[in-house]
Write a protein that binds this DNA or RNA. Structure first.
Lengths: 182, 182
DNA sequence: TTAGGCATGTAAAGTGTTACATGATTTG
DNA sequence: CAAATCATGTAACACTTTACATGCCTAA
């Protein structure tokens, strides 16, 4: 499941141009599958070349022609097949956590900034997600809810456990990780 | 913060060979920063070439020479600098969520398998993490706790909300996402 | 008048993944 | 006897990211 397949999936819903798809990625996939123009445009070109989508060019004034892509029958089948490929991955790559792992080498001010910034981002993404829930398909809602719940858990954890990293209690071996349950 | 920097960081703790580092990646970074030999060995070679680590070759019988890497003064400085680079990323790339987004195109059996498999993996990683907690630095414990809490939240969410995707209630607009609080 | 939105793409660089290639020793 | 562990790496491939390149229209 790469950007190409995801574009194909979005085109099963509506026809769209690359610019439109980028907006959909921003609003719906941002928190678990980011993609930029540099991925989307080549993906669309590949899909067209493979015959999985067709392209209709709409002339415009003062702008490049709008290339509207529509999925083909072959594209629908290819997408269903992709959806049934075994073992879809779920990968986190966190420079943030990698950095925090070495917290004892970072001064408190920097550490506080890192944690605050992360919590702020998490709260932002919760707000983003809440704004687009309820309106869409069951799958979209489920995925949005997942993002919100996980982000909330992450934010709470950081807030509840930051004292383990910052301040003079760093070396108190009796302190426990707080695993908030509510 | 790439694999190279992370290797450098691990070498600030102990000297190690590529094989050792791979094991550390497996035990400590697996859930947020996976890396294979194909990343680690070239990273080590690059670090050595840049003078950030030194390498001592220990002859062995029946095995390739063990190349033990040790961080240099320049390496220590480079690592501290890397730790202070602004804005460490935190990126999720989930084919799983992308697939679930299109749940209405997937049959119930397949969907159930996908959700079950994901929950199982999450529980596995919680177990992995629990096994290695408490023993290490505050940073390592914090990061492990983070992983456990987030995985737990994800697993609970999937279990509490799977009914939204599977079964005849799919189209009942009155059903609500359950955001479990305990 | 300035920022943001609309609309397209390419090219190069960076990174990681996967498969390949080797081979003795130890454990079950 | 088979599988896992120890131990090294390379090469090809895939994929994404970032920067570059263009340019009008609209709203604040």
């Amino acid at each position: 499941m790469d950007v190409k397949t995801l574009c194909l999936g979005l085109l099963t819903v509506h026809e769209a141009c690359g610019y439109d798809l980028k907006k959909t990625f921003e609003s719906s996939f941002k928190h678990f599958f980011p993609a930029g123009y540099g991925s989307i445009y080549p993906a669309l070109a590949d899909l067209a070349e493979a015959g999985l989508v067709s392209c209709r060019e709409i002339p415009q004034i003062g702008k490049p022609d709008r290339k509207v892509y529509r999925i083909t029958e072959a594209g629908e089948q290819a997408f269903i097949k992709a959806l049934n490929r075994t073992d879809p991955q779920h990968k986190l790559r966190s420079e943030f956590l990698a950095t925090i792992y070495f917290a004892d080498r970072i001064d408190d001010e920097r550490l506080a900034d890192l944690l605050d910034a992360r919590v702020e981002r998490l709260r932002e993404s919760i707000a983003d997600i809440s704004a687009c829930m309820d309106t869409e398909s069951p799958g979209a809602s489920f995925v949005a809810g997942f993002g919100a719940v996980v982000a909330e858990a992450a934010a709470k954890y950081i807030e509840s456990n930051r004292h383990l990293l910052i301040g003079s209690d760093n070396h108190d071996k009796d302190m426990h990780i707080k695993v908030a349950t509510g």
